[in-house]
Nucleic acid binder design. Structure first.
Lengths: 231, 231
DNA sequence: CTTGTTAGAGTCAGGATGACTATAACTCAT
DNA sequence: ATGAGTTATAGTCATCCTGACTCTAACAAG
């Protein structure tokens, strides 16, 4: 038995506070040539849930802001710097962990495909298709599901989609992001029309050469570049 | 000096975790007959910020879920049971409190006017117009501003407006809620048309008697009754 | 019974949306 | 070189939603 703590023993203790981060990246499936959402998970190297996959995270250090701690999760598991990082939700149910009362403040990040290709994989860090994750440690299954739900909600309204892509992108690539997140096909012509009226996207004078069809024009995102609400 | 703690001394300590709650209620201004957003604040009875007004809240007890702690804030300051209670944001900046590293998970609640009339006021609990609050303890000015912003965002999209009202209400009353939150005039005819297509609102066969004009029909909200996302 | 006020229905033009068609520009196989 | 296949990009058209507005109904107060 890895712990003798039970509910009555830990009633008086102050809850532990941890930060976790859901890191979403876009990967293009080589076979179908369609974009998909992936995320990195880390293998737990201690009890509870030893050996199972979990969201990157750890206890909150007294010297760090919440946002900084989430950025550190991102850096330590993938080697990447955050381009989009926002608070998702604070999870604090009584039965989240068998060994202690644990409150987790969860952030979510978006990284670009060129960054995701650089990210290290190892024995204890591996990338998974977001639609495949199941059987994670703690309540992390539900947290990932909730993060995907929020991602879907945000992409319709706001400006998150661009943060999945590099600074130059084609409209077909951007449409691929929307289709991957929303899970449905979008009409290319109508998609184009909508984005011409979107004000923080601008056409460049370059086109993407090297494809097997008519070369598409490259676009640029000119809006605000990071999502950081209050501190 | 109420504390000798400084930044370097508290670097190693685990952050304290507290729950606070922003409680919004609707009050009808007798003079202009227009609805306004009010909220109760409590006077601090200890350092830091002794004597200043602050959001109701306190440290998180190990036995309570986050939601339960927020409901307790509501109950203890107003005597009310929650009808709408949702997590707002977790604030964890390094300089929120001068005496300790403090992480606050903030909830927001909506209460109906009939409930707000029952709520006790006292020497240390008083209601304020939301647009007037300034000079609160800690960073609570910003928290209230952020809560109002979220309220505005949610009311356009979702079903929060009904939770400000009783189980029977006229369309003029509901429009008053929207106008108070959004801060602008809405056309009565267009507002009516939109709500006829809203599916979780149903007309009753009753009308409100006693006014000085044509008696308006009463409506009922039939959708889900509380906002509780994950735990 | 007239006046003032709100309730509630209806009209109309403009803008956005989804489905669809047509043409342009490129690569590749023959 | 030429035609087939594919994507880029523009345009059309009917429908729905929205804001501004008009009109009538139903009450209270004088």
């Amino acid at each position: 038995m890895y712990s003798s703590a039970n509910v009555s023993e830990r009633q008086g203790q102050a809850p532990s506070l941890a930060i976790s981060t859901v890191i979403f990246a876009l990967r293009t499936d080589a076979a179908s040539d369609r974009s998909e959402i992936w995320l990195p998970l880390v293998r737990r190297i201690r009890q509870p849930h030893l050996g199972r996959w979990a969201l990157p995270g750890g206890p909150l250090d007294g010297r760090e802001s919440l946002q900084d701690a989430a950025a550190r999760n991102l850096r330590e598991t993938t080697g990447l710097e955050p381009t989009y990082l926002e608070q998702l939700y604070a999870f604090g149910g009584l039965d989240r962990s068998a060994t202690q009362r644990l409150v987790s403040i969860v952030y979510w990040a978006l990284v670009r495909p060129d960054q995701a290709d650089l990210a290290q994989e190892s024995e204890n860090v591996r990338w998974f298709r977001a639609s495949d994750v199941v059987g994670l440690a703690f309540d992390h299954d539900e947290i990932v599901a909730y993060a995907l739900e929020r991602l879907r909600g945000k992409i319709e309204y706001g400006s998150v989609a661009y943060h999945f892509l590099g600074d130059r992108f084609t409209l077909a690539q951007l449409r691929g992001v929307y289709e991957a997140v929303l899970g449905r096909h979008l009409d290319p012509a109508n998609f184009r029309r909508q984005l011409r009226s979107a004000k923080d996207i601008a056409a460049t004078d370059e086109v993407l050469q090297g494809g097997r069809n008519r070369p598409p024009r490259l676009y640029r995102y000119t809006g605000p570049h990071a999502g950081r609400p209050p501190s």
